Simulated scan of single mutants.
Amino acid sequence: MTDVDLRQLRTFVAVAECGSFTDAAALLEVSQPSVSRGIAALERALDVRLLDRNTRECVPTVEGARFLAEVRVALDAVDRAVASVAPSRVRRRALRFALKADSDAGLLPEVLARFAADGADRPAVELVFAETSELADLVRRGAADVALVVGPDHGDTRLFHGVEVEPVWRESRVAVLPAGHELAARGVLARADLDDEPVLAWPDLPPSYDRYYRGADRLPPERAPRPGPAARNLAEALRLVELGRGVTFLPLSVAERSRRPTVAVVPVDDLSASVAYVAWREGSRDRAIAALLEATLAAASARRAEAPAAVVRSVYRPGSTSR
């Protein structure tokens, strides 16, 4: 039988999730040479290379990724077994919840409160803020346990490769214009009303998200938006709109939370909806992760019951379109 111990397995998971021997050592509160020796011993015992190392990062090999998925399941089972007879001996690490800082539609406090109230043994939740295009990859690499990804309906499927997702809510999108714009006083617009306006580009995002923020995801090729300056983040986009350099299209909740006197928010009745997904690692059987997912769904469902239809148009339920 292969001579492998739990310490080696936990060390391997830490390195794979942190992407660094140094960071893994800090997480485990051991020395870096100890981590290196543990990984070397594990690879010798299995006679397989589990990690690719370079000067910038450390990532699992194909065999390492396969092993990582099974090891996580095994360690979860060990922790549950220990907790069943000696709960105080289990050291619960915080769950890492990744999201774009301005994308939760104001639901995050309710999600965290529901999760914490659901059981005294719930682990803490550590928030990991990142850009939209990075979120699913954080889950895929093990750097986050759950992510909230907001964007076009089903988005860019490449973002979701290797993770499981569940749509949580969908909401209307709006045009964000300079406050003095002649269209700012209109009660509702059509996308065609803005065909002559320069539209901000989002070059750092995947193509499907760039089209989504430019309101171009339903436009035929011959109606490509008039190009405007590039924005790398929401703060830059709002500043460019204020200065009259262009317009952009945002989920209603994001636009409302970012509202200021110098910009106007106007509904656009023929834009596609914005959809929020929760994403988690493929094959996860972690009960705490499942509880965090349920808390997110429950908070969104409660919001739907309380909020005007214009804020959250509908809420998906589990099993609706899971992939």
Rank of each mutant, 00 (worst) to 15 (best):
F160D: 03
A40M: 07
A94K: 13
A117L: 08
S301G: 08
L148E: 01
A113S: 06
P109M: 08
L271W: 14
P87E: 10
A86W: 11
V150K: 03
L183E: 03
R66W: 00
L205H: 13
R49G: 12
R186P: 02
S314I: 08
V265E: 07
T248Y: 05
W202R: 15
V268L: 04
L6Y: 08
D137H: 13
V48N: 12
P87K: 14
V111W: 01
L51M: 14
R122Q: 13
L127E: 02
V268R: 12
S34F: 06
D217H: 14
F12C: 04
P207L: 11
P167Q: 09
V111Q: 01
V315A: 15
A255G: 08
V111R: 01
A16G: 11
L194W: 03
V165H: 06
L28D: 03
R66D: 00
G38P: 00
Y212C: 13
A310N: 11
R232I: 02
E222A: 12
S103F: 11
D52T: 13
P123F: 11
A310I: 02
L205F: 12
V165C: 06
G119I: 08
L138F: 15
R10V: 05
L205M: 13
L238N: 00
A295R: 01
V71S: 10
D195Y: 12
V4D: 01
D5L: 04
G151M: 03
W280S: 04
A144W: 14
L148R: 04
W280V: 07
K100T: 05
A117V: 03
P60F: 12
R323F: 13
V265Y: 12
L238P: 00
R304W: 04
A224K: 13
A184C: 10
T157M: 09
P152E: 00
G155W: 00
E236M: 11
L177M: 05
R114N: 07
T2L: 01
R158M: 06
A305F: 05
A105F: 05
D79E: 12
V188Y: 09
T11M: 15
E70M: 00
S272R: 15
V266Q: 02
